[in-house]
């Protein structure tokens, strides 16, 4: 499936079906992140139930502490 992630078209493996899978794929599942799919922010409780479709526009911002 092809997703537009942070403005870039990216091919993700077939196993990636939900937001939760996507975060795991990018090894962001243990980090605190804000995820937007087609301009709607997905609440954390819905990561596992929110399925992604070909062409979805996803923005992912994760928090870091350094400075």
């Amino acid at each position: 499936m092809e997703l537009v992630i942070n403005g870039e078209s990216i091919q993700v493996p077939n196993e990636v079906k939900t937001v939760s899978d996507l975060l795991a794929h990018f090894q962001l599942n243990k980090k605190i992140a804000i995820v937007e799919v087609n301009l709607t922010i997905i609440p954390k409780q819905q990561y596992e139930t929110t399925t992604l479709c070909n062409g979805d526009k996803v923005e992912i911002v994760h928090f870091v502490g350094g400075g």
């Binding site: 942070n6 403005g7 937007e36 922010i41 911002v61 994760h62």
Partner: peptide
């Protein structure tokens, strides 16, 4: 907007977070 970037991976993201 909450903005983030990765200058090595050439990525940029921006999310309007008012709804949070």
């Amino acid at each position: 907007k909450l903005v983030s970037f990765d200058l090595w991976k050439n990525q940029h993201a921006a999310i309007r977070v008012d709804q949070v």
